[in-house]
Nucleic acid binder design. Structure first.
Lengths: 235, 235
DNA sequence: CCAAAAGTGTTGGTAGTACACCCATGA
DNA sequence: TCATGGGTGTACTACCAACACTTTTGG
């Protein structure tokens, strides 16, 4: 069947970053050519014949934005026949996170029209990219509850308040500071360091913490991660 | 770029069914032509230019197996360049469930070489289909914990013991019968009927229950479904 | 009357939530 | 010394886990 192959395959990446002041931001690029010329879009491009999907995303992100990704996972594949007005393009969307230090966009790439947008101040997006973004945001919120992706959005060493703020931002609510801290410490997911944050305005200096990866993988294997349902009821 | 388009797009569906005696089964079809001639494979096929991905899966499942799907969701997209020895094929895999009554395979389709296999008695699979199946099984186990997909695997009316058995099978452990029942009743996800199962051997006859969809969507919206983390801590 | 499966209630432990005061620094 | 943000402990509650006996049917 189908000798004539008119379905094209692309990858797109929704890249999230976090800054205490601006909250969650997404990385977008401005389209230089029609359709949707002048609109903003999620970075991405076509998959080459010899490369894997992950390679394609990584390559496109490097070419178009130059950011350093700290976390990447597949999100969803969008395949409605009319999602691109020109031809049939099926897009495998990825979900990516960057640390604050990775925020700088490389000026050396030609596409210096990449820009960060706070998720509550988004411009109109090209194609079905608003929908893709919505799915990505849902994933972000869901995932932060049972996997420590929050750490991928913070610097390696961070004060507890940053983690706390991040959770409140992503989940859109307030969480008791003390209970929040107890939870993470009890799970052992964070390690207390003997360092303090160097001056961040007024107030008592904050102790720094670090994500405990070993502990994380341990919990993950035993399945006791963030105890969902039936934490010990299943024997 | 890429005027010459050599990447082909396929959809595959991992269909799970449940029978108290055999446990979880998967629907496979026997390959009639090389490569992997004689091996078993997950049903699927190429996407046509005018149809959506979901339409493609549905069509292929109907053509190849004739089963009636009760639940369908996208699973993952597999795109390693060498996953098919002939040419580059990227496969969007779907995750599907059928009710016991849908087990019968339509004999009228040409591919009457579709067959159910218990997941602990699988034949060697073609391509990377063992990997796809593994991902699907992980999804099944994960999902049954926080969404009531269990109900999609049972008849509309079922005795509580069936639901209980299903959970024990999927999760691979024993769960206290009384606590399990309490959990579901408290959440209000099951409705007690005034019917009993007509004779199933010896023992006291079991009352029948039914899944309460309204209640489910209610819980889902308020986010209190199977209380994950922070059931009420986020204000 | 025995075996098999279904039905039901109580108790103790523990984890989660709510909540308020003190401490260290910069201005 | 005041404002700002960081640090800590306790009491109450509610959910979960553990557990055993009774009931109804078929053979």
């Amino acid at each position: 069947m189908s000798d004539k192959n008119n379905i094209h395959l692309a990858v797109d990446a929704v890249v999230f970053g976090y800054q205490p002041q601006k909250g969650i931001s997404v990385l977008l690029i401005e389209r230089k050519y029609p359709p949707f010329k002048g609109n903003w879009a999620i970075p991405g491009g076509f998959v080459l014949e010899h490369e894997s999907l992950e390679e394609a995303v990584t390559r496109e992100l490097a070419e178009e934005t130059g950011v350093k990704i700290t976390y990447l996972e597949q999100l969803y594949t969008f395949g409605k026949p009319d999602r691109d007005p020109r031809k049939r393009i099926v897009a495998v969307a990825y979900f990516a996170l960057v640390r604050p230090e990775g925020f700088s966009l490389s000026a050396d790439t030609d596409a210096s029209d990449a820009k960060w947008f706070a998720i509550d101040e988004l411009p109109p997006l090209a194609f079905d990219h608003d929908q893709i973004l919505k799915v990505a945001l849902t994933r972000l919120r869901g995932k932060i509850l049972y996997e420590p992706i929050g750490f991928e959005l913070l610097d390696e060493k961070f004060p507890f308040s940053s983690l706390h703020q991040l959770y409140e931002t992503v989940l859109g609510g307030t969480i008791d500071r003390r209970n929040f801290k107890k939870k993470f410490l009890k799970l052992g997911l964070v390690e207390e360091l003997n360092e303090q944050r160097k001056q961040a305005g007024s107030g008592r200096p904050a102790r720094l913490y670090r994500f405990n990866e070993e502990r994380y993988f341990g919990l993950k294997q035993t399945g006791n991660l963030f105890e969902l349902w039936l934490p010990s009821g299943v024997k």
